[in-house]
Each structure stands twice: as C-alpha cells, then as structure tokens.
Amino acid sequence: MLACGIDIGSAQTKCVIMDGNAILQGRGIVHTGANQQRAARHALKAALREAGVEEYDLSITLSTGYGRHSIPFSQKSETVTICHARGSIYRYPETRTVLDAGGQEMTAIRVDAEGNVLDFAMNDKCTAGTGRFLESIADLLNMSMKDFRGIKYHETDPLFVSNACSVFAEQEVINYLEGGKEVEDILGGVFEGIAERGASLLRRVGLEDEITFTGGVSHISGVSSALELVLEHKVNSGIDGVYVGALGAALLALDQSKHR
C-alpha cells in the first residue's frame, strides 16, 4: 500500500510517497514554471525513482497547492492549510502553531494534537515577505537562494527594510546599495522584515508551544533565526520544511484509503 502526496506551489512542485505505515519512501521537487501538469509529472517521476516503485503501485494520490485542480492523476485534493497542519504534526508531533511561508503565500495555523486546523490567518493578496519576494531581492543582488542560506542573521547588523510592499522594499534595497551598505546587513533587514510579518500572522491565531516553521522560505536559516528573535521563542525548522505540505497530503491520502 503506497500513498502519494503532491503539492503544486506557485514556485515549486513537491511530491512524496509513503507506505501504509506512514514511512517516507521517496521525494521529488521541481520548479513549477508555466506548465503545472508537466511539473507534477516530473516531481512524481523523481519521487517514484527514489522510492523504487512504479506509478501503478500507488494506491491513492492526493494533491494540494494552488495548482491542485490541474493534476489528472490525483483522485483527491485538499487545501494547503489542511495539508501543512497535518504534515507539521508528522514532523514535529508537539506542534500547536505553524507558520508556512511559500512562494506566494504566508499562513499561520493553529492545530490540535491530531493535526486538525483550529484557526488560521493568511497574508492578503500581496506577496511581500514570501519566497517570491526573496527571489526578486536575490535577483536584484545577483545572488541565489543558496547564497541566502549562507547568511548568518546573528552576524549581520540589520538595516530597516519595509515589509509592507515588495516594490517599496526593492527600492529601499537599491537605495542602500547606492549608499554603499553591506549586502549582508541589507539581507539581515530583509529577513527581519519577513520574520516580523510572520510573527504578526502568528499572533493573530495565537501562539502556543511548539511553533513549527514550514515551506520553502523556512530553509533559509537567517529567516528562522530572525523569527526566533522576534518571537523570543524557539521555532522548529528543518531541511525538509518545503515538503511538509506534500507530506500532509500523503498522510491525508492514507487516512482516506483506510476509511474506504
């Protein structure tokens, strides 16, 4: 019995395969790009390869993410919020509050011990403080996300960068560069701005121990460090944070196949 969870985000498409005991068997990740179906196929292929199984071995596939309705090979779909809540509990069982920062969305979720959503708050239409925003700053600085991961927040002297609007923030970054400021200190400010936006969403749903940080942005340790500092609280985050939505999707798929 194998279940597949696939998370088609605005930036990246993630796929995981789990066996009947909820043990992870394979993972795949690709850029979503302009063709969601193609991205989903490629992510699935990568996960199948890692798991060493074929597509016909999969009992059930559940899709999530903004492109969840465009996947022909999934039988079920669920919202990202529900999947992230479930996936967070799987990774960190004591989680009660989740912050998910993805390509275009930032969501704070309060969950119960089973991973059910109690409350959630999302950023409005604007994408300031999300992965897309970080990408555009990286682009401006001619750097990559990998470079960003190397920035130690504690070693920077963060400059103030507005977190209300990406366009304004970009302008501020340009002004700092013009003033000859250090790139590291500018990024420290960018990370802090994202952390503050996340913290305000978290406070809206209510902070409860433990706090888990998920989504692609959680891989940037500078942001999670800044978040810990802003919240004055420890935050769980790991290298597979980007897969949490797909993990949740696979777990929900397992549940559904058991109920059948």
């Binding site: 275009q104 994408t127 366009v167």
Partner: peptide, 8 residues
C-alpha cells in the same frame, strides 16, 4: 497599478 498584484 501594482506589479505584485499583476504577478499574482
């Protein structure tokens, strides 16, 4: 009006 909303 807004590049960010346009991108969405």
């Amino acid at each position: 009006i807004c590049s960010v909303l346009a991108e969405t």
